[in-house]
């Protein structure tokens, strides 16, 4: 019965090796490598040669006005998309949590964007944002607003991206919040009903406080995801970071530095900075999750 530790390790490795092979080559090594490269000053992609280790790439990235712009855009994107989509999601989750008919129909409508390609849907949004024949400008004209150049005007690019972002984030957020609401003991609601509380009062006095940990968690997860905004730009702006390069985001900056400018080291430094932002947010998420368990 008692296996020697070596034998048990051997058996475990048989089970683990396919998994570990993938993890080591495509997760562990890349992370270590990017960290390393980000400290190599004067790195040349073709030869792998570099001058010395230092913080040069970081100072270069942080001094790059495109990166500063990327940080600003990403920050603004997170600042608007996350709270607004979460607030809307709370509303719709609460509505979906009512005793309603046509649940299947509503679920399909609300959760469909979760499964469809962002590229295809982004293209549909591009069409809706169209200056001349887009449906948005038509709807605006009905209330007397003159047409807006959603995508090709520097002033509106970020707004257009944010609206699309909110729409994209809603389904996932609604599902998590709905699951949180369904975990609330119905006894609380019965008690509130006995006490004669009104619907809105019940919502703000019972649902929202009991949902607070879920909301906290959802906010963090959404923040992490929103920080990685990038793919959305491709269908909307033909693969450019907005009109006149005004819509750099952090990930787009990394992609651009690496893929177009072939600046591996600065791309790496930017990636490490992104990692630290995500890392801090993840720590907050784990903290909330731990607290949630004691709830």
């Amino acid at each position: 019965m008692t296996k020697s530790p070596l034998k048990s390790l051997g058996e475990a490795l048989l089970y683990l090796s396919p998994f570990l092979l993938g993890v080591i080559i495509f997760s562990l090594y890349p992370v270590a490598n990017v960290f390393l490269i980000s400290f190599k000053e004067g790195y040349r992609m073709a030869t792998g040669a570099f001058q010395q280790y230092g913080l040069g790439n970081y100072t270069r990235v942080l001094a790059d006005k495109d990166f500063i712009l990327a940080l600003k855009n990403t920050g603004l994107y997170v600042l608007f998309v996350v709270p607004i989509s979460t607030a809307l999601a709370i509303l719709f989750a609460a509505l979906l949590n009512q005793k309603i008919r046509f649940t299947g129909l509503f679920q399909t409508a609300y959760f469909l964007p979760m499964v469809t390609s962002g590229t295809a849907v982004g293209l549909a949004w591009k069409w809706m944002y169209n200056y001349d024949y887009g449906i948005f400008n038509y709807l605006l004209s009905l209330i007397g607003v003159s047409p807006i150049n959603f995508l090709n005007d520097v002033r509106y690019g970020l707004l257009s991206l944010i609206i699309f972002g909110i729409w994209s984030m809603l389904p996932f957020t609604i599902i998590l919040l709905l699951a949180g609401m369904q975990n609330i003991d119905p006894l609380y609601y019965t008690a509130a009903k006995v006490d004669g509380a009104k619907t809105t009062k019940t919502f703000f006095r019972i649902t929202v406080p009991l949902l607070a940990p879920t909301i906290g968690l959802v906010l963090i997860i959404n923040m992490i995801n929103a920080f990685k905004v990038c793919s959305e730009l491709f269908p909307l702006f033909n693969g450019k970071p907005g009109v006149a390069y005004s819509l750099y985001t952090v990930v787009f900056y990394i992609y651009d530095e690496f893929f177009l400018n072939r600046q591996l080291a600065t791309a790496g430094a930017a990636a490490v900075i992104l990692f630290f932002i995500v890392f801090v947010l993840t720590m907050v998420q784990l903290f909330i999750q731990r607290k949630w368990k004691h709830y």
Partner: peptide, 13 residues
């Protein structure tokens, strides 16, 4: 390792 965003690994991969 799970916390590291995939975007960071793209370069080396």
């Amino acid at each position: 390792l799970m916390m590291v965003p995939f975007e960071m690994m793209i370069i080396t991969n």
